[in-house]
């Protein structure tokens, strides 16, 4: 699935969750099922320091596709990370660079991307793009 198709899929899934409780229960579930990354991957260079919750992001490039591994100490942050990883995993650096993340707004979680939220998610999206830039240049 392309980044576009993935985002559409998530928006469709969330349309079924019509109140905040269902929506957040789903995000919390996603957060719980996202595999934890190993402690040795929780390095300073993989850390995105939000003011309140920490986010770690690591990536590998295989056959010109990027794969992301991420974790957070807050479960809601982790749930949203799971959505972001789902959108970007297995995509080429070029496609990631050219994409626009709009699904978070569409599923009513825009407040989590506001800089005042201080949960590291905004920086995480930036870091995903940076990883893409790094790997696109190499190729």
């Amino acid at each position: 699935m392309s980044i576009e198709e993935k985002q559409k899929q998530i928006i469709e899934d969330f349309e079924l969750l019509d109140d905040w409780e269902l929506k957040y229960e789903h995000i919390i579930e996603l957060g719980k099922s996202l595999p934890q990354i190993e402690d040795k991957k929780k390095t300073e260079s993989n850390l995105i320091e939000g003011c309140q919750s920490k986010v770690w992001l690591d990536s590998v490039l295989k056959e010109n596709k990027l794969y992301f591994f991420a974790d957070s100490d807050a479960i809601i942050t982790k749930g949203i990370i799971a959505l972001l990883i789902d959108v970007f995993n297995g995509q080429s650096p070029e496609d990631i660079l050219n994409s626009e993340v709009y699904f978070i707004n569409q599923i009513g979680l825009q407040e989590h991307l506001s800089p005042t939220r201080a949960n590291g998610l905004l920086s995480m999206v930036k870091k995903i793009k940076m990883e893409a830039i790094k790997n696109a240049t190499v190729n």
Partner: peptide, 13 residues
């Protein structure tokens, strides 16, 4: 076992 950020987010809702 609960991060304060998570609790704050759900209370805000």
């Amino acid at each position: 076992g609960i991060h304060p950020f998570d609790l704050g987010t759900l209370l805000d809702k």
